[in-house]
């Protein structure tokens, strides 16, 4: 593997890992709260999270550009003072915001499918809210891990937001590099290499997460006579 391909691959892994990790820390508890909580506005927040799952990356990138670029029409915002525009930080921020709704929405959906009787029983045996959340997440781990796989896949493969807020050689990921090298009506070996590595990377990570996901889980329901 040549040096630039290795550097881009490692950068892609970093972008995918950090954005998914940050979104995980915020998104799983938020999804759990939305899935299990009973509070005013919960349905509206769930609807927003579900809509965000298919958020257009380009639109998100443009919004971030307006917030990050000091001379934009929205210039002078707190974020523009960070000088993140066209840096890897902007790329990670964009991808984090892109995958956060995926983790929130899919976690909420997964914990909502945990049998209510089990959670009621835990409550009846004195379980505190954190223990109830831990129980729900454990029971819903297959769904939550599916959310993590989807989030990681989006973080490494989506290009729309990155090309707007971080399109430079120092921020290129495999997806943006493949896009840049590919030109219409001609075959480009570099572009295909970037795309192939990206595909391989995703398959390896997805397979690893699937192993964790399936673990020793069984799916037969509790038999009621």
């Amino acid at each position: 593997m040549d040096a630039s391909l290795l550097a881009i691959t490692l950068r892609t892994l970093r972008v995918g890992g950090e954005s998914t990790g940050i979104a995980l820390v915020a998104g799983v508890p938020a999804g759990c709260a939305l899935g299990l909580g009973r509070f005013r506005g919960r349905r509206a927040l769930l609807a927003i999270a579900n809509a965000g799952i298919r958020m257009p990356p380009v639109a998100l990138g443009q919004l971030l550009w307006l917030l990050l670029w000091p001379n934009s029409q929205w210039g002078g915002s707190v974020l523009s003072g960070l000088h993140w525009i066209y840096t890897l930080a902007a790329v990670i921020l964009a991808q984090t915001l892109l995958v956060l709704p995926i983790l929130i929405g899919l976690t909420a959906g997964a914990v909502q499918r945990v049998p209510e009787e089990l959670l009621d029983q835990a409550r009846a045996f004195g379980a505190t809210v954190p223990r109830l959340a831990a129980l729900a997440l454990r029971e819903a781990r297959i769904g939550v891990l599916a959310g993590i796989i989807a989030a990681f896949g989006t973080a490494i493969a989506s290009v729309g937001a990155i090309v707007v807020v971080g399109y430079s050689f120092g921020t290129a990921t495999l997806a943006t590099a493949a896009l840049r090298e590919w030109s219409a009506y001609s075959f480009d070996g570099h572009a295909v290499a970037y795309g192939s590595v990206l595909l391989g990377l995703f398959l390896v990570v997805a397979a690893a997460l699937t192993v964790v996901q399936q673990g020793r889980a069984t799916w037969s329901p509790i038999r009621q006579s």
Binding site: T128, L135, R138, E139
Partner: peptide, 23 residues
């Protein structure tokens, strides 16, 4: 309170009883 449905988590029987003790 032990509710009507014998709701058990997707774990071993021993782990289920230990989980209740943890709660």
């Amino acid at each position: 309170a032990a509710l009507q449905a014998p709701a058990l988590a997707r774990r071993s029987v021993q782990a289920n009883v230990e989980a209740a003790l943890a709660w």
